[in-house]
Design a protein around this nucleic acid. Structure first.
Length: 797
DNA sequence: GTTCTAGAAC
DNA sequence: GTTCTAGAAC
């Protein structure tokens, strides 16, 4: 009966299976006279190495019910099968009156949704979430042998990391009647016992078991990063102490939850006692004229003065100097020094010294409170916060931020910092509106810690200044980046102030129309994200309704797959990828494409943070585009000098698969085993490929580049020379290997880069395609200058 | 029976 | 992005 159900359409399949199941289960129910508990579908949720298979085996071994384990890795006669096969096997098992354990990762909602549909009126669906720390899962995955899915050894770590980034914890709304969260081995044992002891007539109460509160999660995860926040020169307080402090100041807290911190000096009502009033005052930005005008604001702790035992007096000098220097270079950005304790010595020292040095008090402030609760605890709108790292307690939390952090860097050296975007799913982002954390490492004066400077305060102060400079500059780069603006667009309550607009114009030197163009993208980005945002936004953007949708179809991707960050990583840390990179400059890195689609295929990748794709480009990036083009041309020249048959095209994909803006420099032979799919071909041979020179021209003229639709990737396959159509890629490749036709007219305006023939010092040039073949036969004695005169359109660089 | 493609999984 | 696979197309 069931075997005749087609598998092609899963939804229909499930529906059909359920109809069949209904009959059979009714039959079973009638046999048991209604006494039997419902069959269970228990969907395991957990990364590789979290112990799903062990859980299943342990339950089955001691079970009082009959269980069937459904494992996609072995579903097809011991080999890996499909999701549909798993669904059918599960339905079959239910039909036979068995209970089912779904042994797949099921980390994402859509991966488990079809399995949840197996439940309904006929079976209860439970989730058991093996939410063990990432490091545990990775360690187990790497060490295991003989894994059914062959996910073991070195590759396992990367896979687990990637998968965990996409993890979405289940909730009851998905259709589960009971969800059990296991955070450690004891939790797992308890859950195993629960299910193995479950008798035929038993049922488990519905609800969520073992989930820690969102607050607890933040404290567990994020607070570890921040546990070294200075408190009066002592080591950190524990989180309970922090909570106690907040609790004691509930009046102040409540007031600050109104989202509008009052400038210091406004009197409170008489109902508040003097101590409370004092504490309340200290929880606010300390400088009375600090202005909240939605300018980009960085909150940062004092670096090195806690665990690293840096002298506070000297440190406060460095802070004030670094802040003053930063303000002299960047306008309309704000900084807040945060310390947990209202009695903080560092805050007092810095306040006094900042005042003496006439640091702009409308832009610099101090604040006593929890840096991870600036919004909910103090109503402060700080979208970027800093974490003063130390050397051995970092990156051990196993949460989304830790994984994001590990993606960025394994270590940082003293005096430097790294930016880590805070995942949208993180409570720090959702609750506090923090979209970036900058981790910064200062100098260490503590002999118990690594790299102790042994009271060398000459070097210590230098490194501390470098740490603050790095931190502030990274903050500035965030403020300038498109990503930052995107994050804060789309909330009409927080329209940009004129000063913010000026900030961007003054710093990035963009031309008047640039910001207008930019705003279009920002709004479309927010729209595509569905990000209306309940939290305050710094850079809401105004735009006419008709402009809003104009670029929405072409705008930056709202999310990137877990594989899509590799280029970004290389661009940000090229020194860690020496094998891949063939050239590094301040503006770009050049690397061989890992999967070249032609004999020569390299990528010139921008190093500007937050610049992911063509849609992010504005006039302010023109100079960088020119540099990237020049670099691409130089390499094309070099390749052509070694193989004059190579003709190159330089351009961008309208919608790239990998983030971080990259220019493709690709030879037009397309002779590569990696060119295997229609979309590979069409991404380079339809208007989806945007020639670099055209992009530059458009940016010059319009301030933005044309972005073509992704549906072009499904176009019919046509030869890039003669435009003949071919039924499939192998046939096309066979054809292009022998096609002698010149390049088409639309590539005759400098898009192609040819080699000068026969000369050891051959240069490249771009010109009319048919002319090029003639040019290639010119006598060797023709100089480059002569060619320029002859052709008039050369782009010899 | 073989080739090719699209989609799921990673 | 690639790999793997089933099933469509041939």
């Amino acid at each position: 009966m069931l075997s005749s159900i087609p598998m092609a359409e899963e939804a229909d399949t499930v529906s059909s299976l359920l109809n069949a199941l209904a009959i059979n289960h009714s039959f079973l129910m009638s046999l048991s006279e209604g006494k039997e508990g419902k069959p269970l579908v228990v969907i395991l949720v957990g990364a590789p190495g979290s112990g799903k298979t062990t859980f299943c085996n342990d339950v089955i071994r001691a079970a009082r019910r009959t269980w069937t384990r459904i494992c996609q890795d072995t579903i097809a006669n011991g080999k890996a099968g499909t999701k549909a096969q798993c669904l059918q096997s599960a339905a079959n098992a239910l039909q036979e009156g068995k209970n089912v354990l779904i042994d797949r990762c099921n980390l994402e909602l859509e991966q488990r949704s079809e399995f949840v549909k197996l439940g309904g009126a006929r079976a209860d669906v439970h989730a058991v979430v093996l939410d063990l720390p990432a490091r545990v899962c990775i360690s187990r995955s790497v060490q295991r042998t003989g894994h059914e899915g062959n996910l073991q050894g070195g590759k396992a770590a990367a896979v687990v990391n990637r998968m965990l980034q996409k993890k979405v914890l289940p909730n009851l709304n998905e259709g589960f009647s009971r969800i059990t969260f296991c955070q450690n081995d004891d939790d797992v044992k308890t859950a195993v016992n629960t299910y193995s002891f479950l008798g035929l007539f038993d049922s488990l109460p519905p609800g969520i078991i073992g989930q820690k509160s969102a607050d607890a999660k933040v404290q567990q995860g994020i607070m570890k990063f921040f546990k070294k926040v200075d408190t009066d020169g002592n080591c950190s307080q524990n989180s309970s102490a922090k909570r106690e402090y907040v609790s004691q100041n509930s009046a102040a807290k409540n007031e600050y939850n109104e989202n509008k911190p009052r400038p210091m000096g406004i009197e409170k009502g008489n109902e508040v006692g003097k101590d409370e009033q004092k504490n309340d005052m200290l929880r606010k930005p300390c400088v009375s004229d600090f202005q909240w005008n939605d300018a980009p604001t960085l909150a940062f702790p004092s670096i090195s003065t806690s665990d690293f035992q840096f002298n506070m007096d000297k440190a406060s000098d460095v802070i004030v100097e670094a802040v003053a220097d930063f303000f002299s270079k960047f306008d309309k950005v704000k900084l807040i020094l945060v310390d947990l304790s209202p009695k903080s010595k560092m805050l007092s020292l810095v306040k006094v010294k900042a005042s003496k040095k006439n640091v702009d008090t409308t832009r610099f402030s101090t604040y006593a409170g929890d840096i991870t609760r600036l919004y909910t605890g103090g109503g402060l709108h700080c979208n970027v916060i800093a974490n003063a790292s130390n050397c051995d307690t970092r990156w051990t939390t196993g949460d989304a931020l830790e994984i994001a952090t590990k993606e960025q860097a394994d270590t940082i050296s003293p005096g430097s910092s790294i930016i880590v975007p805070v995942p949208r799913t993180s409570p720090l982002n959702q609750r506090e509106g923090v979209t970036y954390v900058i981790h910064v490492l200062g100098p260490n004066m503590n002999p118990q810690r690594p790299n102790c400077l042994k009271d060398d305060y000459v070097k210590g102060c230098k490194v501390l200044y470098e740490a603050y400079s790095s931190l502030f500059n990274n903050f500035a780069s965030i403020a300038l980046s498109q990503n930052y603006q995107k994050e804060y667009s789309g909330d009409s309550k927080y329209e940009p102030t004129k000063s913010v607009g000026k900030f961007f114009e003054s710093v990035v030197e963009c031309q008047p129309s640039s910001s207008e163009q930019k705003s279009k993208r920002e709004v479309s980005y927010a729209k595509s994200n569905g990000d209306s945002g309940g939290l305050p936004r710094c850079f809401g953007m105004l735009e006419k309704e008709e402009q809003k949708s104009e670029r929405s179809d072409h705008s930056a991707k709202s999310s990137w797959g877990s594989w899509a960050h590799a280029l970004h990583q290389i661009a940000m840390h090229p020194e860690k990828h020496n094998r891949d990179v063939i050239e590094i400059s301040d503006d770009f890195v050049v690397l061989n494409d890992l999967y070249p689609k032609a004999k020569k295929h390299i990528l010139v990748t921008s190093r500007l943070p937050g610049l992911d794709c063509l849609a992010d480009i504005g006039r302010e990036h023109l100079q960088m585009l020119q540099k990237m083009h020049a670099a691409g041309l130089k390499w094309a020249e070099q390749f052509s000098s070694h193989d004059p048959s190579l003709v190159f095209r330089l351009g961008y994909h309208s919608v790239p698969s990998m983030r971080q803006l990259h220019l493709h420099v690709i030879s037009q032979d397309f002779d590569s085993t990696h060119l295997r799919k229609k979309k590979h071909w069409n991404s380079f041979n339809t208007p989806f490929f945007r020639d670099s020179i055209d992009v530059q021209e458009e940016i010059k003229m319009n301030g933005l580049a044309t972005i073509k639709e992704e549906k072009l990737l499904s176009s019919e396959l046509r030869c890039h020379h003669c435009k003949s159509a071919h039924p499939n890629l192998p046939r096309l490749k066979y054809h292009i290997a022998t096609c002698k036709a010149p390049f088409p007219a639309h590539l005759q305006n400098g898009q192609l880069v040819f080699a000068l023939s026969g000369s050891s010092d051959a240069a490249s040039y771009s010109c009319n395609g048919s002319e090029a073949w003639k040019c290639a036969k010119l006598e060797n004695h023709l100089t480059q200058l002569t060619l320029i005169c002859l052709l008039g359109v050369l782009t010899i660089n």
